[in-house]
């Protein structure tokens, strides 16, 4: 485990815990896209199937359980919690996320490493994670301003993906371990999606103005 990988996992953990804490504490999910949260819950559910069959390490298993638990908790809060659900912006969060799920499913059926159910679902989860943030970014554009916790959430997710790319580069040069090109491309696409958000996030932070995304 290299520092990039550990830092990446920690920022990813922070992003979901920050979001869960915000929703639990202020009993509000204003600015949060339920669609993105549902997509992430699906990403984890289809990627962590091996949690019961392949034991890699305590760390690996514990982190998978935390990610599964937190992502499904966030979906539960927004859908079911009597107070939180009132602050969910149904009219604005209209991204048809099925338009993301189906192409990822088809792509996984076309491009994969092994044609086994577990591998297909794993590949599907890699593709889906790359685009899962889109409903959230669209919602942020629509609601124009970003309350800082949602901004932090997207920022931490972007940081986690960037660190994972550094981790893959590091592993390529040290362990002769190469990441399958499928994972490379999906990971790069995902990170690039954050690039413009990063630009506006830093601009607003530098000029100390409220973060505004251009329409």
């Amino acid at each position: 485990m290299n520092i990039f990988r550990l830092a990446g996992d920690m920022t990813h953990l922070a992003s979901v815990l920050v979001l869960l804490l915000k929703i639990h504490t202020i009993k509000s999910c204003a600015g949060v896209s339920l669609k993105t949260q549902e997509l992430y819950a699906l990403v984890f559910a289809t990627r962590y199937l091996d949690i019961f069959t392949d034991f890699i390490s305590v760390y690996n298993t514990v982190m998978k359980l935390i990610f599964l638990g937190s992502s499904f908790s966030i979906v539960w809060y927004i859908r079911r919690h009597k107070i939180v659900r009132r602050s969910y912006d149904k009219e604005q969060d209209t991204f048809r996320h099925y338009f993301l799920v189906l192409p990822c499913l088809l792509l996984a059926l076309l491009i994969h490493e092994k044609f086994t159910v577990k591998e297909l679902l794993w590949t599907f989860s890699i593709y889906l994670e790359a685009v899962a943030i889109l409903p959230q970014l669209v919602l942020l554009q629509r609601t124009r301003n970003i309350d800082n916790l949602t901004g932090q959430y997207v920022f931490l997710l972007g940081a986690y993906r960037s660190l994972y790319i550094l981790n893959w580069i590091y592993r390529y040069f040290t362990e002769r371990h190469f990441v399958h090109w499928i994972t490379w491309i999906a990971g790069l696409v995902q990170t690039l999606l954050y690039a413009d958000f990063f630009y506006y996030y830093f601009e607003s932070w530098k000029n100390n103005v409220k973060l505004q995304l251009p329409a």
């Binding site: 990988r5 996992d9 981790n167 893959w168 002769r176 371990h177």
Partner: peptide, 10 residues
């Protein structure tokens, strides 16, 4: 040969 895909990652 090196393992191909990062299955030990999250």
């Amino acid at each position: 040969n090196p393992k191909s895909v990062a299955k030990d990652e999250l």
